[in-house]
């Protein structure tokens, strides 16, 4: 187990280093941030003062060394724009992002898995076709487009829900629905195919032959097997969820870290962008690690190198 964790951690560290370095280079290749922060016509001499103050007058290599030294000291840089630590800026917006992402995730998993299972159990029926039509439509449609449609109908036409902002549960409904429809559509489709695969396995016939009720066959015999491929997909979707929430937070002016990130990219606010990417990469890595561990619990046939069962 220890060996396995060490290998995993080493790989994760490498991935993080790679992502962070790539972002670092791409950002600096994208142009001088001073021109997007200060208005045109500001004298170069003024800009030079700030360049020196923010340390971007040095060579890329020097900046890179300093950046990493700072990371290990727990300093993730200072926003050019707000003059506050990037860490603080992102962390204070995290609760909103987690609220939106978490709600979406929980609802999507519950809805996606149960709808997918229902579709599989009623294969070929009206329910199956109905669920799958909605699922395919929802994940084929770009989320920002779906979001706009929902705003048009529920906010502008019916005047039931606010178009933007945060604060009450009503604010949460539209962005969470937009993100959740796409996510649960994907999960439902995978659950359905996993369930269909499981339902035609001989051990399901054994369960019937031993006199298990329909409900018991599904919950105790089929679902635990169908969960194995489904969990993989859900794990992958977590990365997608973060990406999707960046877009949705912008569409619905949701005051979360994703929207901060979009603004920061626009003004080349190096520290904030780097900090956000570092955080997203860590989240995805942790999610994949959790999926791996969960796998071992779900599927007794899998023993990870180094783990003795």
């Amino acid at each position: 187990m220890t060996r396995y964790i060490i290998i995993k951690l080493a790989r994760s560290a490498f991935t993080l280093w790679f992502v962070v370095s790539a972002v670092f280079l791409v950002l600096r290749a994208s142009g001088d941030p001073l021109y997007s922060i200060f208005s045109l016509g500001t004298p170069e001499s003024t800009l030079d003062i700030y360049r020196e103050k923010w340390g971007i007058d040095k060579s890329i290599f020097e900046q890179y060394i300093i950046y990493f030294q700072d990371i290990f000291r727990g300093d993730f840089g200072t926003s050019f724009f707000d003059a506050r630590p990037a860490w603080d800026l992102i962390v204070e917006r995290l609760p909103n992002t987690l609220l939106l992402g978490g709600t979406t995730f929980v609802i999507s998993v519950v809805a996606g898995v149960s709808l997918g299972a229902i579709a599989a159990l009623m294969r070929g029926s009206k329910w199956d076709r109905g669920i799958m039509t909605v699922a395919v439509a929802s994940f084929s449609m770009p989320s920002y487009f779906l979001g706009l449609l929902l705003i048009l109908f529920f906010s502008l036409e019916m005047r039931w829900l606010p178009t933007a902002g945060a604060g009450t549960w009503q604010h949460l409904i539209l962005p969470a629905t937009t993100l959740g429809l796409t996510l649960s559509g994907t999960i439902a489709r995978f659950t359905r195919s996993a369930m269909l695969e499981v339902l035609r396995q001989p051990y399901m016939r054994t369960a019937r032959a031993k006199g298990a009720s329909k409900w018991r066959q599904i919950v105790w015999h089929a679902l635990p097997n169908a969960a194995i491929p489904t969990v993989t997909v859900i794990g992958f979707q977590l990365g997608w969820l973060i990406g999707g929430s960046v877009v949705i937070e912008t569409v619905f002016s949701w005051p979360g870290a994703g929207r901060l990130f979009i603004v920061a990219v626009g003004v080349r606010d190096f520290a904030v962008v780097q900090m956000f990417i570092l955080m997203v990469a860590s989240t995805v890595i942790i999610a994949n690690l959790l999926v791996d561990i969960l796998y071992g619990y779900l599927d007794p046939r899998i023993t990870i190198t180094g783990i003795k069962k």
């Binding site: 001989p202 051990y203 032959a209």
Partner: peptide
């Protein structure tokens, strides 16, 4: 049943 290896539930 015929094939015992696949007639038992693999996760139980």
């Amino acid at each position: 049943f015929q094939d015992p290896m696949v007639s038992l539930n693999p996760v139980r």
